[in-house]
Structures are given as structure tokens and as C-alpha cells.
Design a binder for these strands. Structure first.
Lengths: 242, 242
DNA sequence: TAGTGGTCTAGACCACATT
DNA sequence: ATGTGGTCTAGACCACTAC
């Protein structure tokens, strides 16, 4: 779960309670102390506590019930909150057999008609193209095609692409990813899929199209993640918004 | 987008601004009035306005930028917020050629080993099984298998299943769905898929497993939605949580 | 009746962007 | 310096649950 270290009071209280839940201090089915008690314990106001608890609810840790209290949910039911904006690196480091990444292509190019459309490029605008395959247990099962606006990401090296591009963007460039739109669809394999993936006879792939936006609402990245059918999985935790 | 009519101030302000955005009162790229101005205009406190604006941001209508203001996003980019908990009925009514639903099976049964596990049933507990196929343009492309705990949904008729079960649950039974976990995966077709779907030669389906919880955090429904590969689509809008 | 979470207020100070 | 959104406070009243 992506979570910045901010010294906000409500954020640190949130992280504190998450820790308590993970440690088993609070077990599934238990009730948290009331908001009033928590406010007293953390020496803060109730509204601040409520901010922390709302975060816990959003992320599937608790369920708040009016008149009763906040009940700790069974997070193991929601194993791996892969949902949302989690990057490949964060995802893979939780796995026992970590995958290997191979950088097949890293090219600076002008946007073609397709890219101009999906990245809202101005004519002639330059982009980085990164094509990587993800190897799990000796098989290439995911093909990631990333496109970044060069006006925002000026430099990119094979070394960076081998590790986490997002780590580079966030830690080194200071870019802040804010929201993303994902589209899931199944498509026939392309020549590129045949070239870079071990398809094992499958002739379709699950394609995840990802449009990523920065804090100032500018679109800066388009990614196509192409998964061999039998290796695709996605988990989503959705809460009814209030 | 599911949105209850509550007379909460922040909720009605939210709905008001949504209407303004949809009417074109505010256009993509425009800035909303500042929180201070909105508070004055709606004769309320700034915190209440902030609640409304946070809802707008969560649902992809605006992007809030510190020091600058709240910018209206281009919702057409995020066409159909299918994300989250939207039901089939809500989804289908937005389509030009509405699909037909056929109820293949409606049976009251005891939970087998599989259901006991996914629905956390006590031994011998009864469930409703509903098997429906969704017909788009003359082809059966989705097979929905729903399981409801009988202790929560006592009665169920073919008539209800033909329309929206959720409408019945929420409007008639007063059940409130609170959150859900979805799993996406691709699987080989079963005999049932061959029986109820027009598979057009495809031998795999996209399976969406859906675990639905009520307001008091009790699991009450398990659904398996099986989509013919070429007809599967899912859109997700994810915002980095704060 | 007492305790819980949900909403709302009127202020305060802060971090950031613009001028 | 001014204006913006982000955090935080100390209260208030309400709706719901439990006893």
C-alpha cells in the first residue's frame, strides 16, 4: 500500500493503528476504542481521529457502524490490496519468487497518431518508449509498454528501467502521481507479444491500459500492460462512497 | 454512479456542483470558486464545502491543487465510471442496445464445500442460487452466477431476478451494500459456460469473483460473472488516497 | 438513558502558488 | 502580500444502538 511519510497527525495515527492491526493488537471482529477515547489517548480532537478512521475504512481495515463502533475487518480476506495505483515494483516485492525485468527497448521517439491521441500530445512532441518483459519462474508472461512525455521526463536510462521507473520519478524527479484510469480488455496477440512473451499456445492477452495523471491533473504517462491469459490477476477493493 | 438522496448539506452541495459540471456551467479546465467563496454562497462552513469537494475529487470530477484551486476535469476522458460497486442494471441502462437477461436457474440449496468457504456459511446453511445469462445483440456473452445467504434474503422470485436483484434488495428489503472485493482472472470454460453462453469458439472466459458485504460488515453475497473474452471490459478510476 | 458514530460550525494556523 | 487549499481544534447537535 502506497503511503507517504507525512507528519500529519491524522496520518501518523492512521499508520499507528494499521500497525496495531497488523501486530494483532486488534483482531478481526474486535472493536476499536471509541472515537472519543482515541481522541483522548492521542491527545487530539475527535475530527482528527475521524480522519484517521476514515482512512482505515477506505483501505479495508475497519468498518464503521453508527451507534456501535469501528469493527476490525479480516484483512486476510482482502489479501494483497493490489487495487488502485500500486506499481509493479511494490507488487512484486511481496512475492516469494520475485520476477526479473528485461528491458527490450528504450527509445526516444515522436508521437504517432495513436500516441498523440492517448497522451494528448501536441504535433511532433517527443516521448520515451520503454518496452519491458516480466519474467516469472523462467517465463516471460507480462509485456509492459510505457510511454512518457519527454517534456516531463527528460532523461531515462536502461538502468532506471531495470529497476523501478516510478521510484525514479517520485524520489529523484519529485513527480507526484495523483490519479489514474485503467481499462481492462482481452485482445488478440500482436507480433510483439509473440516476440517478447512465452505464450504457451495462448493467442490472446489481457491488456491493461493505464492513463496516469500528475498532481496538477496533467496526463504524463500511458502504459499498456499485456498479460498472458493464465497469469493475469487483479484484485479490487471498492467501498461505497460517502 | 450510485448516490443516495440524503439531505446532508455536504451531499446536496456535492450533487449541486455535479449538476453544474454536467450542465457545462463549469467546463473542463475551469476553476471552481474558492472554498471560501463556495462557503459563503452556500451559507455554510468551509469544512462542509471541503467535504463536498473531496467527494467531487474522489469521483473524478475535479482535481484540487494546493495554492491554486479546484480544477474541473474532463469526465469524458473517464467515460463510464464503471468502477467499484455499480450493478449490472445501472451499467446496462447507459447502453444504446440494452441487453436481455434470461434466468436459467433459481434454486434454494444447501451450501456445498465451495460455497461454505467463499460465503463463510455455517454447516447446512441455505443459500439462493441464481444463474442468469446476459444477451447482447442476440448473443449470450455473460453468465452471472449469484449466491445469496437465505438468512438475509428470504424470498426471491424469477420475476425479481429478471429485473434488478439489487433494486429489490435495496428498495424492498432495505439492505445497504457497503463494500465489495473483486477478483479478476481468466479460466477455461466449464460445461455450464458451453451450455449457457454463445462462445464463438473461445475456450476461456474472464471470471469476475465478487464478494459483497453489508453495512454491518457481514458477507451476504458471492457472485461469479463469466464473460466471453472478446466482450469483457472493465474501467477503473483510482485516486491516490490521502 | 448512555454511548456510539455522523454532521456541522467558526475559527485558527500552515504550506504553497501567484503577483 | 494575498489568495489558495490542508490541517486542526473544541465545541455542538443529531441519528442510531444498546441496555
Amino acid at each position: 500500500m502506497v503511503m507517504k511519510m507525512k507528519e500529519n497527525k491524522y496520518m501518523s495515527i492512521y499508520q499507528n493503528i494499521v500497525k496495531d492491526v497488523k501486530r494483532g493488537e486488534y483482531k478481526p471482529g474486535d472493536k476499536l476504542p471509541s472515537e472519543h477515547e482515541l481522541a483522548e489517548h492521542y491527545e487530539t480532537s475527535r475530527e482528527t481521529i475521524r480522519k484517521s478512521l476514515n482512512l482505515l475504512a477506505q483501505n479495508g481495515y475497519i468498518q464503521k457502524i453508527r451507534g456501535k463502533g469501528s469493527i476490525v475487518l479480516d484483512m486476510t480476506q482482502f489479501n494483497l490490496p493490489i487495487s488502485g495505483l500500486v506499481s509493479f515494483k511494490e507488487l512484486s516485492k511481496e512475492m516469494s519468487n520475485p520476477p526479473k525485468t528485461k528491458v527490450n527497448e528504450l527509445t526516444e521517439m515522436e508521437g504517432n497518431a495513436f500516441l498523440e491521441k492517448v497522451l494528448e500530445l501536441s504535433p511532433g512532441e517527443k516521448v520515451w518508449q520503454v518496452v519491458r518483459s516480466r519474467n516469472f519462474d523462467g517465463e516471460n508472461v507480462i509485456l509492459d509498454k510505457d510511454y512518457f512525455k519527454k517534456s516531463i521526463v527528460e532523461q531515462l536510462t536502461v538502468e532506471i528501467c531495470k529497476n523501478s521507473i516510478y521510484e525514479y520519478l517520485e524520489k529523484d524527479l519529485g513527480l507526484i502521481i495523483s490519479f489514474a484510469k485503467k481499462e481492462f480488455v482481452v485482445e488478440k496477440c500482436t507480433e510483439e507479444d509473440y516476440a517478447y512473451l512465452d505464450l504457451k499456445g495462448y493467442d490472446h492477452v489481457v491488456v491493461v491500459r493505464n492513463y496516469v495523471y500528475l498532481e496538477d491533473a496533467t496526463l504524463f504517462q500511458y502504459t499498456e500492460s499485456r498479460h498472458r491469459l493464465d497469469k493475469f490477476q487483479f484484485v479490487d477493493f471498492a467501498r461505497r462512497e460517502k
